[in-house]
Design a protein around this nucleic acid. Structure first.
Length: 743
RNA sequence: GCGGGCGUGGCGAAAUCGGUAGACGCGCCGGCCUUAGGAGCCGGUGGGCCCAGGCCCUUGGGGGUUCAAGUCCCUCCGCCCGCACCA
């Protein structure tokens, strides 16, 4: 068990109530412990950890320093996402539709110096290794889209007037001859320099200022009409020497590629839209008479005698090769993924272990001085800088390098840093010499089966993969992937089918549920409600049904144990397969063995807990329907149901099992089916004519084809349907069905 | 727009490899037990015919492959999720 304890919820609560986040967090942890115990959730408490404790975040800081040493943690000024409500910067991954993932406020863009993790160095490995892990396809797809690898070429366009080269990235070098203008992002550092002294200087300033003040949401709207202004300069198209006009336009993004593009309006929808607004020339270079813009394949036209007539896919290769020879371009790969912005201007997080020295600049805190403890402050209110800045005694320190005066970093880390390595700490939770012992880690890692909500698909699950790869490169661990297999479970929704929330008033809280139905019924119901990868609405009548089932099982056990059903029941005896059951008893023993097999396969193979529980219900129902069966068979079937139900309803499973057998179910091995009891000596032969079921007859298991045919032809309803028809073909599925094809 | 997923009774769902559609549970109907039943036990329950033996229809719509399709293929419709001016 572990608690991802740092973060905004505890801090915002502190701002509202004045309770220190540490106190509120520890209280919450106490409540979690209490409820885990009441629900009977059985886990290894000896490895309990919490990310807000110095014994944990000391090692978060230690890992940060290892990243820093290798240049994987660095500081840079960049256009970053700023949440005006939470008063902190956010990672790209935490901005959803232009809004703060946490509070929903419109995110602004600010130019700030911040700490980043160089996750982009790992883009290819994060992409490629997805093929090696057993994860749901949709999660892999989401990660692939997020990384957004594009293969293309970098091509240099030169502005002769200012003698500056502008490389651009394109995925379509085959359309280079169709470039009729050139566009730069408003954030491009050269925009003002280019416009200076031209007639457009004023307009460019106005346009750029307006663009920079737009929110992320406004700027990103896909259906927004294209806008831009000319820069009054030209660049030379390297493939044909043409001078094409330069523009600044907000549909070009500074963060992707080089912040400048070659525009090919005939073969790109965005460039086409822009060219229409500004009446710019549109020149087809691919295809024959398809409507423009045309983004498909076809022969190259209007380009150069070297390439005209060539299929554009081949021309792509040829043109890139030509660019390389001429030193005007080269193959290039671009990613949508950005570096992970990890600093936050908030209090309740892991302090970043560096100091700023006037003489030595950024100086890491030595390992021996870790942890850099989070100091207490009075005021948690965010003011655009970390509340830690107010702790002047803590901020002012000495430089570990020169001993001179220095200031501590006051930003804290994104909580996703804390959670990117907790599974490693579980392996060696109390190690106070190192984050973990490599030998111990090698024994446990990787995680065989990870379970979580799909909301982590690109946040936690990408960050944790990055951490493991970076740590593997430092030889600190021996695996490339943290989570071998992933299962994304659904959510229990409120009774109205909506996500539980206080504002909707549809929250089902655990206390009254456990009081009313018991922890066992509540747990078993949550698993019985449907497939675990699906969301499901809570229903009181549903849980009553499961409660009824558990009570039925309990009464069976009780009756057999107290002597009302079984006079010898007062003496518990181990659950054993009865040696030679007959009649109803044989039926029950077979049913019990069937249930063992079914439950085992459903649970382990595919997490189908709903059908596993249904199988135990069937077994219990059959015992009730066969009270005439001999006692041994009923005892065995009931004890088997108790041990199978134990993972879902541990308290009741334990009790029923112990009443009958005198043994503790968790000390017994998981039951195994007797293979001889998994198959009956007869089966119901399904008799089809032309694929329609016409009759069912009992047939001996393993009977030869000829005998099944005979039995089928003799079945009364089959005979009726065969009358006057000729059998042209007979399909036999052994021990299952027979299909007579007739004319 | 691109990518992924889903669509089965009144409801939650099952059908695991192309082989009996609707297991199990909820709800509903009936019976037993009971002073009583909001307890328990037993039975019924997709729709429509019916000579009571059966027959026809049915897995979002349409088409196809096959002896056989909820399952495979094509197509259309609807819903959900992710990404989205990424050059």
């Amino acid at each position: 068990m572990g608690y991802d304890a740092f973060g905004l919820p505890a801090e915002n609560n502190a701002i509202k109530t004045g309770v220190h986040p540490r106190d509120a967090t520890n209280q919450s942890i106490g409540a979690f412990r209490h409820w885990f115990h009441r629900w009977g959730i059985s886990i290894d408490w000896s490895r309990e950890i919490a990310s807000h404790e110095p014994s944990y975040y000391r090692w978060t800081q230690w890992i940060f320093l290892r990243m820093f040493e290798r240049g994987l943690a660095y500081r840079k000024e960049a256009a970053v996402n700023w949440c005006p409500n939470d008063q902190t910067v956010l990672a790209n991954e935490q901005v959803v539709d232009g809004r703060c993932e946490r509070c929903g406020a419109l995110v602004e863009v600010r130019q700030l110096e911040q700490w980043f993790f160089r996750i982009t160095d790992y883009a290819d490995r994060l992409l490629d290794d997805l093929d090696r892990i057993d994860w749901p396809r949709h999660v892999k797809t989401m990660q692939r889209n997020w990384i957004g690898r594009s293969v293309g070429a970098q091509v240099v366009f030169r502005c002769e007037e200012l003698e500056i080269d502008y490389p651009v990235f394109t995925t379509r070098p085959d359309t280079l001859f169709g470039a009729t203008f050139f566009v730069m992002a408003p954030e491009h550092p050269d925009v003002f320099k280019l416009a200076a002294g031209t007639e457009h200087e004023h307009a460019v300033h106005e346009y750029v200022n307006k663009a920079l003040n737009e929110s992320v949401e406004e700027r990103g709207a896909a259906e927004k009409p294209k806008t831009g202004v000319p820069l009054g300069r030209t660049v030379t198209n390297p493939v044909n020497g043409e001078e094409i006009p330069m523009f600044v336009a907000d549909y070009v993004l500074m963060e992707y590629g080089t912040g400048a593009i070659m525009a090919v309006p005939a073969h790109d929808e965005r460039d086409f839209a822009f060219a229409q607004v500004y009446r710019l020339p549109i020149r087809r270079v691919v295809g024959t008479d398809e409507e423009l813009p045309y983004t498909g394949d076809g022969p190259i036209v209007n380009s150069s005698p070297l390439f005209d007539g060539m299929h554009n896919r081949r021309a792509y290769e040829a043109i890139v090769h030509w660019l390389e020879l001429e030193a005007k371009g080269r193959p290039s790969v671009n990613y949508r993924l950005r570096d992970w912005l990890l600093s936050r201007q908030r209090y309740w997080g892991c302090p970043i272990p560096v100091v700023y020295c006037e003489r030595d600049g950024i100086v890491p805190v030595p390992d021996a001085d870790l942890p850099v403890a989070l100091p207490d402050v009075e005021d948690f209110q965010p003011k655009g800088r970390s509340p830690l800045a107010a702790a002047t005694d803590w901020v002012n320190t000495t430089c570990p390098s020169c001993g001179g005066p220095a200031r501590r970093e006051t930003d804290t880390m994104d909580t996703f840093v804390d959670s990117s390595w907790y599974f490693l700490r579980y392996c060696d939770a109390h190690n106070d010499q190192a984050p973990w012992d490599r030998q111990v880690l090698d024994g446990w890692m990787p995680v065989d089966q990870y379970i979580g909500g799909v909301e982590h698909a690109i946040l936690h699950l990408m960050y944790a993969r990055f951490f493991v790869k970076a740590l593997a490169d430092m030889d600190l661990l021996g695996v490339q992937e943290p989570f071998e297999a992933l299962f994304t479970q659904g959510m229990i929704l409120g009774p109205d089918g909506h996500k539980m929330s206080k504002s909707r008033g549809n929250v089902i809280s655990p206390a009254p549920i456990v009081d009313r139905f018991g922890a066992d019924a509540a747990r078993a119901y949550v698993l019985f409600i449907g497939p675990p990868d699906q969301d499901a609405a809570w229903s009181d009548t549903g849980v009553e049904g499961v409660e009824r089932f558990l009570a039925r099982l309990w009464r069976l056990g009780d009756g057999l144990a107290d002597g009302t059903e079984d006079p010898a029941g007062a003496v518990p005896r181990p659950a054993e397969q009865p040696p030679s059951p007959e009649g109803s008893g044989l039926f029950l023993v077979r049913k019990a063995n069937w249930a063992i097999d079914k439950v085992t396969r459903d649970m382990t193979g595919r997490f189908a807990f709903n059908t596993a529980i249904a199988a135990i219900m069937e077994l219990v129902n059959e015992v009730y329907r066969h009270m005439d069966a001999d006692l041994e068979a009923r005892r065995f079937a009931t004890a088997t149901a108790a041990s199978l139900v134990f993972p879902f309803a541990p308290h009741l499973g334990t009790e029923v099992y112990e009443m009958l057998t005198g043994e503790r179910v968790w000390e017994q091995p998981w039951p195994e089916p007797d293979p001889a009891m998994l198959q009956a000596d007869t089966f119901q032969l399904v008799c089809q004519i032309n694929g329609k079921v016409r009759d069912r007859v009992d047939a001996p298991t393993g009977a030869p084809r000829e005998e099944l045919e005979r039995l089928c032809r003799e079945a009364p309803n089959v005979r009726a349907h065969l009358d006057g028809h000729e059998i042209v073909k007979i399909i036999v599925v052994p021990d299952k069905l027979i299909n007579l094809v007739v004319r």
